[in-house]
Design a protein around this nucleic acid. Sequence first.
DNA 1: GTGCAACCTCAAGTTAAGTTGAGATCAAGC
DNA 2: GCTTGATCTCAACTTAACTTGAGGTTGCAC
Lengths: 146, 146
Amino acid sequence: MDRNDLLPIGELARRTGLAVSAIRFYEDKGLIQAFRTMGNQRRFLRSDIRRLSFILIAQKLGLGLAEIESELSKLPQGRTPTLADWQKISRSMRKAIDAKIALLSLTRRKLDECIGCGCLSLERCRLYNRDDRAGTGGTGPRFVLD
Amino acid sequence: MDRNDLLPIGELARRTGLAVSAIRFYEDKGLIQAFRTMGNQRRFLRSDIRRLSFILIAQKLGLGLAEIESELSKLPQGRTPTLADWQKISRSMRKAIDAKIALLSLTRRKLDECIGCGCLSLERCRLYNRDDRAGTGGTGPRFVLD
DNA sequence: GTGCAACCTCAAGTTAAGTTGAGATCAAGC
DNA sequence: GCTTGATCTCAACTTAACTTGAGGTTGCAC
């Protein structure tokens, strides 16, 4: 169970739910690396399942592949990541989630105010009113969520 | 202040923070409608500011333009939406936000468990373990967030 | 030692959400 | 009436994140 632990791309695809083409695409983008057999076929480490899982989760959080790559670059080169390695990244992810939840809560709160005051249709909400009244200065609805 | 209330596209762009090209694009997609002057220029209703604001907010919540259009199609045809019209849509948005927050909270909880147990790097987490152990059946990390 | 599924590369296509550019027209102040 | 900034249409380009297809190779099971 030494080289036995190296996974061909199809197996990795099956384990992660990703398409084979997507994994090759990620390799191309530098998000993951593969060994090659003598016959030029890719072979992955077991720990790459986690790497790909991380990519999937991070994507759900709205990160682009470039940002994800920069997160992953914090993992050690050459060796299989340790518990501590992953924990560090997990914690930084948790912060991202916290921020996202906070932003959504804010949006929800503002939306509630809007429902209450009718701003989406009338002229008195403090969120929409400013710009709609004056039409000058460039302060607009685009700032509602800022 | 009758026809006076019709806004040219540049004005609408300034009020919403959107690019003129984006507004034309939305019109093309049927998200918004415009009157035309004798000279073929677009003229918008004041209430379209709100319509576009809604689009911006909904996009931040992760909805695609197609979904947004289906939400907007609940608004009345032909007349300026009333308070009640917008309230109905706002409430449905609130539900979307609630759901999104719930999903993120779940993700956060699972991530916390992972940090605690080390699953991202070891073999004992209940989230990642199953598939990694057997490698059969197709249950994989892709289900972590389901 | 052969057959066939799984793998390879490289180029081109796809979808979403717009932007950019060319060439022409409109509207409003002087 | 002329100039100038805003607008018009239509086609092509952009970026992200992949997928699809063509044409060829590998590797393992029998």
